[in-house]
């Protein structure tokens, strides 16, 4: 089997998943499409170095994240958009009342609101939470992608989840669903 055919059968099936990741990074379709294209071109160039027994989804995600970081740095240099965000501790929960039945509460939000809330998180928290929850990668894989210790992934995931929750509580208040004292 040629490299091209192997790439087609091993890597190409993840294009949809990588688009979702790109969307989580960029927050809009145009940039996400460009990022996916860049990622697959880069992956094709580097495919010889891919360990065929390893997790291709994680390998592609690592390439995509590196591409995205490169773009952010380039844009900083050329005076465009977005600072690189650093991992920050989540604010304490603002109001626990609404979470007594969290699944019901979460159904009040549209998909767009949930994604928008995720996009408000810093890049490290956002990427970690996305890769763990949506891509369902292991903490080990995410640690490799993010180039951090597994313990950092665990604490970062937890902080990201709290931050996401706080953001959604904020939306709920705006929508008039929340705000009462316990």
């Amino acid at each position: 089997m040629t490299d091209k055919h192997e790439f087609e059968s091993i890597a190409m099936p993840y294009m949809g998943a990588m688009y979702k990741f790109a969307y989580a990074l960029c927050g809009n379709s145009d940039n996400a499409q460009d990022l996916v294209q860049d990622t697959f071109l880069k992956a094709f160039e580097k495919f010889k170095s891919f360990d065929k027994g390893s997790n291709c989804r994680a390998w592609l995600a690592a390439i995509m994240r590196n591409k995205w970081i490169d773009q952010l740095r380039h844009n900083q240099v050329t005076g465009q958009i977005l600072p690189l965000e650093h991992d920050i501790a989540a604010k304490p929960a603002q109001n626990e009342t609404e979470w007594s039945d969290c699944r019901d509460f979460l159904e009040k939000f549209s998909d767009e609101q949930v994604i928008k809330a995720l996009l408000t998180l810093g890049e490290e928290q956002r990427t970690t939470l996305f890769l763990i929850d949506v891509e369902q990668l292991s903490q080990d894989d995410v640690a490799k992608i993010m180039d951090v210790a597994v313990g950092t992934v665990k604490s970062r995931t937890s902080r990201a989840r709290s931050a996401l929750k706080n953001e959604l509580i904020g939306y709920a208040k705006e929508m008039g669903y929340a705000g009462g004292e316990k």
């Binding site: 294009m15 949809g16 688009y19 979702k20 969307y23 989580a24 996400a32 499409q33 996916v36 969290c102 699944r103 979460l106 939000f109 998909d111 767009e112 949930v114 994604i115 995720l118 939470l129 996305f130 763990i132 929850d133 949506v134 369902q136 937890s158 989840r161 996401l164 929750k165």
Partner: peptide, 17 residues
């Protein structure tokens, strides 16, 4: 935590290229 994870996954299930 599980509910948040599930909701996030559901939200992205409709994001299609």
């Amino acid at each position: 935590k599980r509910a948040l994870a599930d909701r996030l996954k559901l939200a992205f299930s409709k994001v299609e290229m």
